[in-house]
Design a protein around this nucleic acid. Structure first.
Lengths: 209, 209
DNA sequence: AGAAAGAATGAATAATGATTCACTACTTCC
DNA sequence: GGAAGTAGTGAATCATTATTCATTCTTTCT
């Protein structure tokens, strides 16, 4: 034998892989998964198309990995926002606000993660993401019911309604083509977010803020 | 001259066109727009693929027309549900229930109309539909604010939240592949709808039902 | 240096499906 | 019947992209 993979090489490969992942990200943030072409990704990464397939089984697998990484980050943010000190309603409101702020900051990305139709393997990842998400919210709602600040209700379904209401308001009417119509000034955004959160919190608590 | 289109011929053509539309419907109801193939549509309709192009400019145009017809029907149903006698909240609740019932009855169809990503011309139609829809709800919410049964709020945004909450609960987590997970018994469905409507009505009115 | 093994390349392939168009079949009117 | 025009046909074409693979380039080790 003459060649045996060395640590240096392993690192170089890992770096190449990371680079491909970053470039794929860039494509997805520009127009979602569907329009992210392998050739474009390879071009951005400065490698040949075949090289992509040396690092990933297929386009779908590449996307699934990207998706997993991105959603893990989002779930962590929500978890973080839910872990502040305070009542359940305060914690929920905090996480909704975080969600909305992040979605507005990267609306195509939000759309890709939440609403864009994707291939089965990616959809599989999305389902995991959704479940993680719903579980977090559901738990917080349950906490609120125990604490007495939220009335008895189907916590799972309410968490779904929360996600639906906020997603629709922020990414729903907006295929990437129409991103232009989102409010752009800081004040406009704050007002938008406040209105949505008011609706959501009323929906949960049955009281006006 | 020897041939001039006659009334009989016009009718026959109209019938063929209608037939194509119906078969396209069938395909869309089975798996959404994206998976509706021209060849399949032609097969169902018992005509050659070329014939489709005799009646419609392109696949996209055909879909846009289908979409227009279908959404008009949906908007009419909501309008109808909103026009019953009663307070604004009663009327809104009635229309939400109608919406939910219809979505559950044909979930792929609902998904295709509400959430499936579609080509630009179809998306254009969807935008019109969404606006018609939002306007109806918004008006009813405004009525409620005037009547005093709904507190002051951004009516347009609230109507968006309503649609989002209800859509997510009913069609959101369900790409056509996963339709199986919807509740199937009549009782289950009623409970599901009631929970969603409770959330929505609280979100609007800030009071528990 | 040179042999062995892996990595990278990118032009060629393959698969999918919408759309076309040369041709046939049908309607209408004289 | 037949001329003129329209509708229907469906195999062939075209376009788009993911994926492959024969070849070339690099790295490693003796």
């Amino acid at each position: 034998m003459a060649y045996r993979e060395t640590e240096k090489m392993r690192q170089r490969k890992a770096e190449a892989r990371k680079n491909i992942i970053e470039c794929t990200w860039q494509c997805v943030e520009e127009g979602g998964f569907r329009s992210a072409r392998i050739t474009r990704i390879a071009g951005l990464a400065g490698v040949a198309t075949g090289t992509i397939y040396r690092h990933f089984e297929s386009r779908e697998d590449l996307f699934a990995e990207i998706f997993r990484l991105a959603t893990q980050r989002e779930v962590d943010k929500v978890k973080e926002a839910l872990s502040i000190k305070g009542t359940a309603t305060e914690r929920l409101e905090n996480s909704l606000r975080k969600f909305a702020e992040r979605a507005l900051k990267g609306s195509i990305k939000a759309w890709a993660l939440i609403a864009e139709p994707v291939d089965p393997k990616v959809e599989q990842e999305r389902l995991i993401y959704r479940k993680a998400y719903a579980s977090l919210m559901e738990q917080a709602i349950q906490d609120g019911i125990s604490e007495g600040c939220i009335p008895e209700q189907n916590a799972r379904l309410s968490s779904t309604c929360l996600v639906g209401a906020i997603s629709e308001s922020l990414v729903g009417p907006l295929s990437p083509a129409q991103t232009a119509s989102l409010p752009t000034t800081h004040t406009d955004q704050k007002e938008l977010i406040d209105s949505i959160i008011n609706f959501c919190m009323r929906g949960l608590t049955g009281t006006r803020s």
